[in-house]
Amino acid sequence: MTVYEKAFVRTIETRYGALAPGEIARKMIEMGVVDMTLCKVLCIREFIADRLKEGVKKIDAMWLATEHFACSYEYVRKCVYYYTDIGAE
Rank of each mutant, 00 (worst) to 15 (best):
T2H: 07
R51V: 01
M36V: 06
G32R: 01
F69N: 05
Y83S: 04
I86M: 01
K57Y: 06
Y4Q: 12
A61W: 05
R26V: 04
I29W: 00
E5P: 01
K6P: 03
E30R: 08
L64F: 07
E89I: 01
L42Q: 15
I48K: 06
V3A: 12
A65H: 14
K27N: 15
R77E: 12
C43M: 15
L52H: 00
P21W: 09
L38H: 04
M62N: 08
V56M: 06
E13Q: 14
D35N: 15
V41L: 06
E54W: 01
I86S: 00
F69K: 12
M31E: 15
V34Q: 01
D85L: 04
K27L: 07
A7T: 04
L42T: 11
Y75F: 13
D35A: 14
I24E: 09
R45P: 07
D50E: 10
G55S: 05
Y16C: 09
F69D: 05
E30P: 00
G17C: 07
K27C: 14
T37P: 00
A18L: 02
T37V: 09
G17E: 04
E23S: 08
M1H: 05
I86C: 07
E67F: 04
F47V: 01
M31G: 01
L38I: 12
E30T: 06
V41S: 05
Y73G: 09
A61S: 13
E30Q: 09
Y4F: 09
E67H: 11
F47K: 05
D85A: 05
A18F: 04
L38M: 08
K53P: 00
R51G: 01
E74H: 12
E13V: 07
E46A: 15
C71L: 07
A65T: 10
L42N: 11
T14F: 12
I86N: 09
C39I: 07
M1K: 07
L52R: 10
V80D: 05
K57F: 10
